[in-house]
Nucleic acid binder design. Structure first.
Lengths: 220, 220
DNA sequence: GTCTTATTCAAGCGAACTATTGAATTTCAT
DNA sequence: ATGAAATTCAATAGTTCGCTTGAATAAGAC
């Protein structure tokens, strides 16, 4: 093998990890898997695709080594192979945010108007958690809360929020969070709370970013 | 537009930054551009491709927003749009290192046997620079040294090393570095020095990694 | 065993990607 | 203006990608 053929082959292999994420559906899959392991069925539901297509994308991720599979009875659970995969997804998302044109508009199309949605940064939330003057709501599905959440947060899945509004103490200052910057649950929660007269804001991003920043987390 | 169509469009856009890097030749281009701006001609030479093909890949990177172009007379110089692009490339490379199977073999095919090549980490080099008991050699082309180098390093492009071996003081302890972990210049330099009886090691990676770690750098 | 459920496999087809070729464009120098 | 150099454009062909459809497996329940 000539020298530049060997070099080309090496860089082709390095590009494999990018190829694995070079598809919107696979990006969605990784985004969901960053919350914890999932079965094919759950994943297909999350990304609005057929089983066969979802399975195919998962096979591709599996071949790239970025995800792992585990069989449990009749179900197969997929998960990210390591934290570096989450890093890759977040870095790639940030690069897109800074450089891909038209992204803001697409985000607005999906998320709606966020201009009236108060947001706070991780550092702000951390400081306020230390002061203890804030109620933090994890509005993801319960299983995701169990797999890991911001230390001190309470689990109220978005679907249950309406019926549990009474549990929010009067005059509370609420911060809601969910999966990440493009997750709609926290937006919904904040809007619902604001309509009820509760002071509420959303964390700028989600749990994976919190954990990646090595801020305090808890499980179970 | 229905909700899951909007979501799909958003994630498609987020995946654009990965698509831009999802090709070995474009990965090589970004790797070179991480050293500083280059003309199309220089880039085509570096990645062993035709002008037309190189230009095409650059257009694609341009469309993704990851690189910028600047005209100077008859030449057009490309450069990375921001540091986050370098972060993306390094993260993606690390993900490939950890998860893409067969990569080690491909690296060995290109780089040859590295088992006799002493390597030192960034932190080690930093400590030894503080103690002042080491000669650091930047063996990249001179223009790359000028665009930025490890503070305290001396520029001896690999092509000039042979004729300047006399300048290495007797009994010196040398560390050579170049573009990154898969750059061959430092390997060559260390081998050449070791044959001459000089104690030499290569930095595990290259200048962009040093700079990204916010270790001391200099210019000019 | 048979049935059911979860997942994968296999084939097909339109779309996008990649390298090649040769012509066209832009800028500078004469 | 004319010519030369650097780069891009346009057309092409082979390859891979991505979604659909329907059949095939694998594991557990009956």
């Amino acid at each position: 093998m000539s020298d530049h053929a060997a070099k080309a082959a090496l860089y082709d292999a390095l590009a494999e990890s990018a190829k694995a994420l070079a598809n919107g559906r696979r990006a969605e899959l990784v985004d969901v898997l960053a919350q914890g392991e999932r079965s094919v069925e759950e994943l297909a539901e999350e990304i609005d695709q057929s089983f066969a297509n979802t399975s195919q994308h998962l096979q591709r991720l599996l071949r790239s080594g970025l995800v792992e599979a585990r069989r449990e009875g009749t179900r197969i659970y997929y998960s990210l192979s390591s934290p570096v995969v989450g890093d890759l997804w977040r870095t790639m998302r940030q690069a897109a945010q800074e450089h891909v044109s038209g992204l803001e508009q697409l985000a607005a199309d999906y998320l709606g108007d966020r201009s009236r949605l108060r947001t706070i940064t991780r550092d702000d939330l951390r400081a306020r958690l230390r002061d203890g003057d804030v109620v933090v709501l994890d509005v993801r599905p319960e299983a995701e809360y169990a797999a890991g959440h911001i230390r001190g947060a309470v689990s109220i899945p978005i679907a249950d929020l309406k019926s549990r509004l009474g549990h929010i103490p009067d005059g509370a200052d609420v911060v809601a969070y969910c999966r990440g910057p493009y997750c709609v649950y926290a937006d919904e929660a904040v809007r619902m709370l604001q309509r009820k007269g509760v002071t509420a804001a959303r964390l700028e991003d989600g749990f994976p970013e919190w954990a990646a920043a090595r801020l305090p987390v808890a499980r179970g």
